[in-house]
Protein backbone atom coordinates (compact mmCIF):
# COMPACT_ATOMS: atom_id res chain seq x y z
CA UNK A 1 0.00 0.00 0.00
CA UNK A 2 1.22 3.50 -0.85
CA UNK A 3 1.90 5.65 2.26
CA UNK A 4 2.15 9.38 2.79
CA UNK A 5 5.74 10.40 2.13
CA UNK A 6 6.30 7.82 -0.61
CA UNK A 7 7.64 9.13 -3.89
CA UNK A 8 5.91 7.38 -6.76
CA UNK A 9 5.86 7.63 -10.52
CA UNK A 10 2.64 9.02 -11.91
CA UNK A 11 1.25 7.44 -15.10
CA UNK A 12 -0.99 9.73 -17.06
CA UNK A 13 -2.51 8.87 -20.46
CA UNK A 14 -0.82 5.50 -20.15
CA UNK A 15 2.69 6.94 -19.88
CA UNK A 16 5.02 7.79 -16.98
CA UNK A 17 4.80 11.55 -16.50
CA UNK A 18 6.53 12.68 -13.32
CA UNK A 19 7.61 11.85 -9.78
CA UNK A 20 5.03 12.62 -7.14
CA UNK A 21 5.50 12.56 -3.37
CA UNK A 22 2.24 11.57 -1.75
CA UNK A 23 1.53 14.29 0.83
CA UNK A 24 -1.32 14.69 3.26
CA UNK A 25 -3.72 17.47 2.33
CA UNK A 26 -2.41 17.98 -1.18
CA UNK A 27 -4.16 17.81 -4.50
CA UNK A 28 -2.90 16.91 -7.96
CA UNK A 29 -4.46 18.69 -10.89
CA UNK A 30 -4.46 17.74 -14.57
CA UNK A 31 -6.65 18.23 -17.60
CA UNK A 32 -9.13 15.67 -16.28
CA UNK A 33 -9.65 17.48 -12.98
CA UNK A 34 -8.35 17.29 -9.40
CA UNK A 35 -7.14 14.27 -7.45
CA UNK A 36 -6.92 14.36 -3.64
CA UNK A 37 -3.69 12.75 -2.44
CA UNK A 38 -5.70 10.68 0.06
CA UNK A 39 -7.10 8.77 -2.91
CA UNK A 40 -3.49 7.77 -3.65
CA UNK A 41 -3.28 5.48 -0.60
CA UNK A 42 -4.00 2.38 -2.67
CA UNK A 43 -1.85 -0.34 -4.13
CA UNK A 44 0.70 0.68 -6.77
CA UNK A 45 -0.82 0.28 -10.20
CA UNK A 46 -4.43 0.67 -9.11
CA UNK A 47 -6.66 2.97 -11.07
CA UNK A 48 -7.21 6.40 -9.50
CA UNK A 49 -9.94 8.65 -10.89
CA UNK A 50 -10.24 12.42 -10.64
CA UNK A 51 -13.06 14.01 -8.65
CA UNK A 52 -15.02 14.08 -11.89
CA UNK A 53 -14.68 10.34 -12.14
CA UNK A 54 -12.57 10.60 -15.31
CA UNK A 55 -8.90 10.48 -16.39
CA UNK A 56 -7.56 7.35 -14.71
CA UNK A 57 -4.03 7.83 -13.40
CA UNK A 58 -1.79 5.25 -11.77
CA UNK A 59 0.99 5.50 -9.23
CA UNK A 60 3.81 3.07 -9.84
CA UNK A 61 6.70 2.07 -7.62
CA UNK A 62 9.83 3.72 -9.02
CA UNK A 63 12.15 1.17 -10.61
CA UNK A 64 15.36 1.82 -12.53
CA UNK A 65 13.71 1.59 -15.94
CA UNK A 66 10.83 3.90 -15.02
CA UNK A 67 13.20 6.32 -13.30
CA UNK A 68 15.18 6.69 -16.55
CA UNK A 69 11.98 7.49 -18.40
CA UNK A 70 10.80 9.97 -15.77
CA UNK A 71 13.85 11.74 -14.35
CA UNK A 72 13.89 15.44 -15.29
CA UNK A 73 16.76 16.16 -17.65
CA UNK A 74 17.76 19.36 -19.32
CA UNK A 75 20.63 17.75 -21.16
CA UNK A 76 21.59 14.49 -22.81
CA UNK A 77 21.16 11.60 -20.42
CA UNK A 78 22.11 7.99 -20.53
CA UNK A 79 19.22 5.99 -21.85
CA UNK A 80 18.04 2.47 -21.41
CA UNK A 81 20.15 0.87 -24.17
CA UNK A 82 23.43 2.12 -22.73
CA UNK A 83 22.36 1.55 -19.14
CA UNK A 84 21.44 -2.06 -19.84
CA UNK A 85 24.81 -2.80 -21.40
CA UNK A 86 26.73 -0.95 -18.68
CA UNK A 87 25.07 -2.97 -15.90
CA UNK A 88 25.53 -6.28 -17.66
CA UNK A 89 29.07 -5.83 -18.95
CA UNK A 90 30.37 -4.38 -15.69
CA UNK A 91 29.14 -7.71 -14.26
CA UNK A 92 27.53 -5.98 -11.29
CA UNK A 93 26.20 -8.17 -8.51
CA UNK A 94 24.38 -7.48 -5.24
CA UNK A 95 26.81 -6.49 -2.50
CA UNK A 96 29.40 -4.90 -4.79
CA UNK A 97 30.88 -1.40 -4.57
CA UNK A 98 30.79 0.95 -7.55
CA UNK A 99 32.11 4.39 -8.42
CA UNK A 100 30.36 6.66 -10.92
CA UNK A 101 31.41 10.03 -12.32
CA UNK A 102 29.54 12.20 -13.22
CA UNK A 103 26.19 11.78 -11.62
CA UNK A 104 24.34 13.85 -14.22
CA UNK A 105 20.58 13.47 -13.93
CA UNK A 106 20.98 10.43 -11.68
CA UNK A 107 19.35 8.21 -14.29
CA UNK A 108 22.20 5.72 -14.43
CA UNK A 109 22.96 6.08 -10.70
CA UNK A 110 19.60 4.57 -9.79
CA UNK A 111 20.25 1.58 -12.04
CA UNK A 112 23.76 1.08 -10.64
CA UNK A 113 22.40 1.30 -7.09
CA UNK A 114 19.68 -1.23 -7.89
CA UNK A 115 22.23 -3.63 -9.37
CA UNK A 116 24.45 -3.65 -6.27
CA UNK A 117 21.37 -3.76 -4.04
CA UNK A 118 20.97 -2.70 -0.44
CA UNK A 119 24.10 -4.63 0.61
CA UNK A 120 26.21 -2.82 -1.97
CA UNK A 121 27.39 0.77 -2.29
CA UNK A 122 27.41 3.40 -5.00
CA UNK A 123 29.80 6.36 -4.74
CA UNK A 124 28.85 8.93 -7.33
CA UNK A 125 30.84 12.10 -8.06
CA UNK A 126 29.59 15.19 -9.87
CA UNK A 127 31.51 18.30 -10.95
CA UNK A 128 28.49 20.56 -11.28
CA UNK A 129 27.18 21.66 -7.87
CA UNK A 130 23.55 21.95 -8.91
CA UNK A 131 23.57 18.47 -10.42
CA UNK A 132 25.31 17.06 -7.34
CA UNK A 133 22.54 18.48 -5.16
CA UNK A 134 19.90 17.10 -7.47
CA UNK A 135 21.52 13.69 -7.13
CA UNK A 136 21.49 13.85 -3.34
CA UNK A 137 17.83 14.88 -3.35
CA UNK A 138 16.89 12.15 -5.78
CA UNK A 139 18.50 9.42 -3.65
CA UNK A 140 16.82 10.79 -0.49
CA UNK A 141 13.43 11.02 -2.17
CA UNK A 142 13.63 7.51 -3.59
CA UNK A 143 15.19 6.12 -0.40
CA UNK A 144 18.23 4.77 -2.23
CA UNK A 145 20.35 4.55 0.90
CA UNK A 146 23.21 2.65 -0.70
CA UNK A 147 24.12 5.66 -2.87
CA UNK A 148 26.22 8.65 -1.83
CA UNK A 149 26.69 11.66 -4.07
CA UNK A 150 29.79 13.85 -3.85
CA UNK A 151 30.36 17.27 -5.41
CA UNK A 152 33.87 17.16 -6.74
CA UNK A 153 36.23 17.64 -9.70
CA UNK A 154 37.58 14.12 -9.99
CA UNK A 155 40.25 14.98 -12.56
CA UNK A 156 42.02 16.94 -9.84
CA UNK A 157 40.89 15.27 -6.65
CA UNK A 158 40.16 11.66 -7.52
CA UNK A 159 37.87 9.44 -5.49
CA UNK A 160 39.52 9.22 -2.06
CA UNK A 161 38.50 11.17 1.02
CA UNK A 162 40.17 14.59 0.78
CA UNK A 163 40.12 18.08 2.21
CA UNK A 164 36.80 19.08 0.71
CA UNK A 165 34.79 19.37 3.92
CA UNK A 166 31.46 19.81 2.20
CA UNK A 167 31.52 16.15 1.20
CA UNK A 168 29.92 14.06 3.92
CA UNK A 169 29.57 10.32 4.17
CA UNK A 170 31.66 7.26 3.61
CA UNK A 171 34.28 7.41 0.85
CA UNK A 172 35.56 4.41 -1.08
CA UNK A 173 38.92 2.94 -0.04
CA UNK A 174 41.88 2.13 -2.28
CA UNK A 175 41.68 -1.19 -4.21
CA UNK A 176 38.18 -1.75 -2.94
CA UNK A 177 35.70 -1.13 -5.72
CA UNK A 178 34.40 -3.76 -8.13
CA UNK A 179 33.49 -1.42 -10.94
CA UNK A 180 33.93 2.15 -12.12
CA UNK A 181 31.85 4.07 -14.62
CA UNK A 182 33.13 7.30 -16.16
CA UNK A 183 30.95 9.69 -18.14
CA UNK A 184 33.48 12.48 -18.47
CA UNK A 185 34.68 14.42 -21.51
CA UNK A 186 38.28 13.38 -20.81
CA UNK A 187 38.06 10.01 -19.07
CA UNK A 188 41.79 9.44 -19.62
CA UNK A 189 42.43 12.14 -17.02
CA UNK A 190 40.62 10.06 -14.40
CA UNK A 191 42.18 6.69 -15.17
CA UNK A 192 45.11 7.07 -12.77
CA UNK A 193 42.66 7.75 -9.96
CA UNK A 194 40.50 4.86 -11.14
CA UNK A 195 43.37 2.39 -11.13
CA UNK A 196 44.01 3.29 -7.50
CA UNK A 197 40.45 2.41 -6.49
CA UNK A 198 39.76 -0.75 -8.50
CA UNK A 199 40.07 -4.27 -7.11
CA UNK A 200 42.08 -6.84 -9.01
CA UNK A 201 39.71 -8.34 -11.57
CA UNK A 202 37.44 -5.29 -11.38
CA UNK A 203 35.98 -3.57 -14.43
CA UNK A 204 35.75 -0.06 -15.81
CA UNK A 205 33.43 1.48 -18.39
CA UNK A 206 33.93 4.82 -20.13
CA UNK A 207 31.09 6.49 -22.01
CA UNK A 208 32.07 8.95 -24.75
CA UNK A 209 30.04 10.53 -27.52
CA UNK A 210 32.98 11.14 -29.88
CA UNK A 211 35.37 8.59 -31.39
CA UNK A 212 38.41 10.74 -30.64
CA UNK A 213 37.60 10.45 -26.94
CA UNK A 214 37.37 6.67 -27.34
CA UNK A 215 40.74 6.56 -29.08
CA UNK A 216 42.47 8.52 -26.33
CA UNK A 217 40.79 6.47 -23.63
CA UNK A 218 41.74 3.16 -25.22
CA UNK A 219 45.34 4.28 -25.63
CA UNK A 220 45.61 5.31 -21.99
CA UNK A 221 43.85 2.17 -20.74
CA UNK A 222 46.34 -0.01 -22.62
CA UNK A 223 49.32 2.00 -21.44
CA UNK A 224 48.14 1.59 -17.85
CA UNK A 225 47.88 -2.17 -18.36
CA UNK A 226 44.11 -2.63 -18.31
CA UNK A 227 43.12 -5.77 -20.20
CA UNK A 228 40.25 -7.18 -22.24
CA UNK A 229 39.30 -3.88 -23.84
CA UNK A 230 36.00 -3.84 -25.69
CA UNK A 231 34.30 -0.90 -27.37
CA UNK A 232 30.68 -1.14 -28.41
CA UNK A 233 27.61 0.86 -29.20
CA UNK A 234 24.04 -0.11 -28.62
CA UNK A 235 20.90 1.47 -30.08
CA UNK A 236 17.25 0.88 -29.36
CA UNK A 237 14.42 0.85 -31.88
CA UNK A 238 10.68 0.69 -31.22
CA UNK A 239 7.96 -1.04 -33.20
CA UNK A 240 4.28 -0.35 -33.51
CA UNK A 241 1.28 -2.28 -34.69
CA UNK A 242 -0.78 -1.01 -37.58
CA UNK A 243 -4.17 -2.38 -38.41
CA UNK A 244 -4.71 -2.12 -42.13
CA UNK A 245 -7.59 -2.91 -44.37
CA UNK A 246 -6.24 -4.91 -47.29
CA UNK A 247 -7.54 -3.20 -50.39
CA UNK A 248 -7.63 -4.75 -53.79
CA UNK A 249 -6.44 -2.77 -56.76
CA UNK A 250 -9.47 -4.03 -58.62
CA UNK A 251 -12.02 -2.95 -56.07
CA UNK A 252 -10.70 0.49 -56.44
CA UNK A 253 -11.14 0.62 -60.19
CA UNK A 254 -14.50 -0.86 -60.67
CA UNK A 255 -15.99 0.53 -57.48
CA UNK A 256 -18.66 -2.11 -57.76
CA UNK A 257 -17.49 -5.42 -56.41
CA UNK A 258 -15.48 -5.19 -53.25
CA UNK A 259 -13.70 -8.38 -52.24
CA UNK A 260 -12.48 -9.11 -48.72
CA UNK A 261 -14.16 -5.94 -47.58
CA UNK A 262 -13.77 -6.70 -43.94
CA UNK A 263 -10.35 -8.23 -44.02
CA UNK A 264 -8.28 -6.32 -41.51
CA UNK A 265 -4.71 -7.36 -41.03
CA UNK A 266 -2.36 -6.39 -38.25
CA UNK A 267 1.14 -5.55 -39.33
CA UNK A 268 4.11 -4.46 -37.36
CA UNK A 269 6.35 -1.68 -38.45
CA UNK A 270 9.42 0.01 -37.09
CA UNK A 271 9.08 3.55 -35.82
CA UNK A 272 11.39 5.73 -37.78
CA UNK A 273 12.30 8.18 -35.05
CA UNK A 274 15.12 6.95 -32.85
CA UNK A 275 18.45 8.00 -31.46
CA UNK A 276 21.12 7.23 -34.02
CA UNK A 277 23.83 7.78 -31.48
CA UNK A 278 24.32 8.38 -27.79
CA UNK A 279 27.89 7.30 -27.24
CA UNK A 280 30.45 4.55 -27.35
CA UNK A 281 30.97 2.32 -24.33
CA UNK A 282 34.54 1.17 -23.69
CA UNK A 283 35.02 -1.63 -21.16
CA UNK A 284 38.24 -2.93 -19.64
CA UNK A 285 39.27 -5.21 -16.82
CA UNK A 286 42.04 -4.62 -14.30
CA UNK A 287 43.98 -7.87 -14.09
Amino acid sequence: MIQYGDTMILFEDGKPKQFITVTQGQTYQNKYGAYHHYTFLVKPGEEILSKNGTGPIYLMTPNPHLITETVPHKTQILFMADISMIILKLCLKPGQRVIESGTGSGSLSCSLAAAVGHKGRLFTFEFNKERANNGKELFAKLKINQATCFWRDVYTNGFLKGDDVENQGEFPQENSVDAIFLDLPQPWLALDHSKKMIKKGGRICCFSPCIEQVQKTALELRQQGWKNLETLECLKRHFERRVKQEQSLFDDVQKKVCTDQNKRVTYSSGINQAYGHTGYLTFAQYI
Binding site: K15, E233, R237, Y280
Partner: peptide, 17 residues
Protein backbone atom coordinates in the same frame (compact mmCIF):
# COMPACT_ATOMS: atom_id res chain seq x y z
CA UNK B 1 -1.05 0.28 -20.93
CA UNK B 2 2.24 1.44 -22.41
CA UNK B 3 3.14 -1.76 -24.18
CA UNK B 4 6.62 -1.30 -25.60
CA UNK B 5 7.93 -3.52 -28.37
CA UNK B 6 11.56 -2.97 -29.26
CA UNK B 7 14.76 -4.39 -30.58
CA UNK B 8 18.33 -3.23 -30.50
CA UNK B 9 21.42 -2.79 -32.59
CA UNK B 10 24.77 -3.83 -31.16
CA UNK B 11 28.14 -3.45 -32.75
CA UNK B 12 31.66 -3.82 -31.44
CA UNK B 13 34.46 -1.56 -32.58
CA UNK B 14 38.15 -2.05 -33.20
CA UNK B 15 39.98 0.89 -31.64
CA UNK B 16 43.58 0.90 -32.83
CA UNK B 17 45.82 3.72 -34.00
Amino acid sequence: SKIDVLDSFLRYHQVLE
